[in-house]
Amino acid sequence: MANMFILISKNNQYSKPMTQAEMKKELEGYINKESFGNLSQALNDVADGKGKATQPYTYPHGTENFPVLHASSGKIGANASISLFWYDKPRDKEKDHYIIAMGEHTTSTTYYLAHYGQTEGDFKLKKTIKLS
């Protein structure tokens, strides 16, 4: 089985593993159509291992804390921009991408979690993430 995408719900439940196309369709339900192209590019970056460090943030999975990565597409401050936040967890010779939040790039080091997020913690929906 290839690398899969898993969406972590607001109550910290994991979705069934999805292909990139299935994840795109799932996440499109949270954004306007103008953002679909940027979502596609951000998901391509996730799949291609082009995530950037999101220091100092980590996310718990079981007894481990995984470093959070992000990928953005679209102009900073533009309403159609998309930023995805996730962590990778190895599985056999593959890895799974656990999506925890989706927002937009507001400055070169800040992101507003406008579209999708958790109910509490660093990746709470409507929270601003600032990188160090």
Rank of each mutant, 00 (worst) to 15 (best):
G74P: 04
M102C: 08
E104D: 11
P17D: 11
D45A: 08
G121E: 11
K124I: 10
K52C: 08
Y59C: 00
S35T: 09
D48H: 12
F36I: 03
S72N: 12
A114P: 00
F66E: 02
K89W: 05
S132C: 07
T58C: 03
L43H: 04
A80S: 13
S81M: 08
A53R: 11
H97K: 10
K127F: 02
N12A: 03
G51I: 01
H61M: 07
G117Y: 09
I100D: 10
T107E: 11
Q41E: 15
P90W: 09
L84E: 02
K93G: 12
Q55G: 01
F36T: 04
I31E: 04
T19D: 14
K16H: 13
Y116A: 07
H97D: 01
D48P: 06
E26T: 09
D122Q: 13
D96L: 06
N44Q: 13
Y98F: 15
L39Q: 08
T54Q: 06
F5V: 00
L84Q: 06
D88K: 04
A53G: 06
K124W: 05
A21Q: 14
K52D: 07
Q55N: 09
I99L: 15
F66G: 05
L43P: 04
L113W: 01
T54C: 15
E28Y: 05
L113G: 02
Y112S: 12
G77S: 01
I99F: 06
T107Y: 06
T119R: 13
Y98A: 00
I8L: 02
G29R: 14
A53H: 07
K126Y: 15
Q13Y: 08
F85C: 12
G49I: 12
T109C: 03
A101S: 04
Y98T: 10
Y116V: 03
Y98D: 10
E120P: 01
S108W: 11
F123A: 06
I8M: 03
L125T: 10
K33I: 14
Q118P: 01
